[in-house]
Amino acid sequence: MLSLFKRITWADWLILAVLAGAVAYVGLRLEGTLNYTWRWELIPDYVIRYREDRQEWFANLLLQGLIATIRICIYASILAAFFGIILGVARCAENLTVRLLARTYLEVLRNIPPVVIIFIFFFFLSQQLIDALNMNAWAREIARGDNAGVWEFFFGDMRRFPSLVSGVLVLGLFQAAFVGEIVRAGIQSIPKGQFEAARAIGMSRFQEMRYIVMPQALRKVVPPMANQFISLIKDSSIISLISVQELTYKTVELVASTRLIFEAWLTTAAFYFILCFGLSLLFRRLERE
């Protein structure tokens, strides 16, 4: 920390002072123009609140949404990584049909607005799957069972489990297209001589990919994959449009019921920033090790 301050010159301090002045000016202008009454003292109760009747603390709207966002992003990232690796390998397959199918999926998802993709996946895939598996009745039965606590630890309120599944499927399949392109670039970055060497010693295509290509390619794609995971967290706000009760959805509920417009959205922005910036620092440290 001390070494960081030593590297800061007078020009850096001047720029920081100008930025601080600009922020203060904008804040004062907004204060006078909007005639808005700030009520920051109410926000902590909507993050975590103490219940007098039960004598315990419980997560309120914003913290519930943050926890739901973390759950959805973890499961969606696993799905996106799994499906994306398959797509990336398929993009480099020797079979023309497999390559075309994978490329079609990737190009369609990369060239259509995310909001449109979200609704298409929700109505034509996610909702159909939930109805076919009768997931609503199954989740309600678990919620009434004795082992509901274990399920709720991993998936939250089981009465909203179909909503969680919708969010994970939609977000995971959407992000898989971008992961697939990252994996494809990693595979194609491997020198052709290694492919030829693998075939020269009699390896099959599967063995070549498993033992030679993929171990090297996956090491190369770790940094862009980490960035894509951070992007997934930010993109998770889109699934609030299909009523998945993550952080953005809960913030809309809070604003509608309390009119804490600026306080709620600024708090939500801070949650997203802390989550994404914290992961960015973590991934940066892992890359150096």
Rank of each mutant, 00 (worst) to 15 (best):
residue 165 V to L: 14
residue 150 V to S: 09
residue 130 I to Y: 00
residue 130 I to P: 01
residue 183 V to F: 12
residue 251 T to F: 06
residue 245 Q to V: 15
residue 174 F to R: 07
residue 170 V to M: 13
residue 240 S to V: 08
residue 168 V to C: 08
residue 267 T to W: 03
residue 197 A to K: 02
residue 152 E to F: 07
residue 238 I to F: 01
residue 188 Q to T: 06
residue 263 E to H: 02
residue 270 A to S: 11
residue 193 G to F: 00
residue 228 Q to I: 03
residue 197 A to C: 09
residue 191 P to R: 07
residue 132 A to N: 12
residue 186 G to S: 09
residue 209 M to Y: 11
residue 220 K to N: 08
residue 242 I to D: 06
residue 145 G to K: 05
residue 250 K to M: 14
residue 240 S to L: 07
residue 181 E to I: 11
residue 172 G to E: 05
residue 237 S to K: 03
residue 146 D to M: 07
residue 257 S to F: 14
residue 239 I to L: 11
residue 182 I to N: 02
residue 197 A to E: 03
residue 153 F to Y: 12
residue 154 F to A: 09
residue 242 I to N: 09
residue 147 N to F: 15
residue 266 L to G: 13
residue 262 F to N: 04
residue 173 L to H: 01
residue 266 L to A: 13
residue 233 I to Q: 06
residue 262 F to H: 04
residue 258 T to Y: 06
residue 185 A to E: 02
residue 143 A to H: 07
residue 218 L to I: 11
residue 257 S to L: 14
residue 148 A to L: 08
residue 261 I to M: 11
residue 267 T to H: 02
residue 181 E to N: 14
residue 194 Q to R: 07
residue 186 G to P: 00
residue 205 R to M: 10
residue 156 G to C: 11
residue 197 A to M: 04
residue 244 V to W: 04
residue 201 I to N: 10
residue 150 V to Y: 10
residue 170 V to N: 05
residue 155 F to A: 07
residue 141 E to T: 04
residue 231 S to G: 15
residue 246 E to D: 13
residue 136 N to Y: 04
residue 263 E to A: 02
residue 236 S to Y: 03
residue 148 A to F: 13
residue 194 Q to H: 05
residue 152 E to N: 13
residue 153 F to L: 15
residue 137 A to N: 06
residue 231 S to Q: 13
residue 252 V to N: 11
residue 249 Y to W: 15
residue 207 Q to I: 02
residue 136 N to Q: 15
residue 133 L to P: 00
residue 252 V to M: 10
residue 246 E to R: 08
residue 194 Q to K: 02
residue 171 L to W: 03
residue 131 D to E: 14
residue 172 G to D: 06
residue 257 S to P: 05
residue 160 R to L: 13
residue 156 G to P: 00
residue 200 A to F: 08
residue 221 V to G: 02
residue 267 T to V: 12
residue 242 I to V: 15
residue 181 E to Y: 13
residue 258 T to H: 10
residue 136 N to H: 09
residue 210 R to C: 08
residue 181 E to L: 10
residue 246 E to M: 06
residue 245 Q to W: 14
residue 220 K to H: 07
residue 132 A to K: 08
residue 213 V to S: 00
residue 130 I to T: 01
residue 271 F to N: 09
residue 170 V to C: 15
residue 266 L to Q: 10
residue 226 A to M: 14
residue 228 Q to R: 04
residue 200 A to E: 05
residue 153 F to D: 07
residue 197 A to Q: 10
residue 186 G to H: 01
residue 267 T to A: 13
residue 148 A to Y: 06
residue 222 V to A: 06
residue 132 A to C: 07
residue 180 G to H: 01
residue 138 W to A: 08
residue 272 Y to P: 00
residue 250 K to Y: 15
residue 165 V to N: 05
residue 234 K to T: 05
residue 236 S to V: 03
residue 131 D to P: 01
residue 231 S to H: 11
residue 164 L to W: 09
residue 140 R to A: 04
residue 253 E to G: 13
residue 147 N to V: 10
residue 205 R to W: 14
residue 130 I to Q: 01
residue 223 P to L: 14
residue 257 S to I: 12
residue 134 N to L: 06
residue 132 A to E: 07
residue 202 G to P: 03
residue 163 S to V: 10
residue 153 F to G: 07
residue 143 A to M: 04
residue 207 Q to G: 11
residue 243 S to A: 15
residue 139 A to V: 02
residue 204 S to L: 05
residue 210 R to V: 05
residue 160 R to I: 09
residue 223 P to D: 14
residue 222 V to R: 08
residue 145 G to C: 04
residue 183 V to E: 00
residue 176 A to N: 06
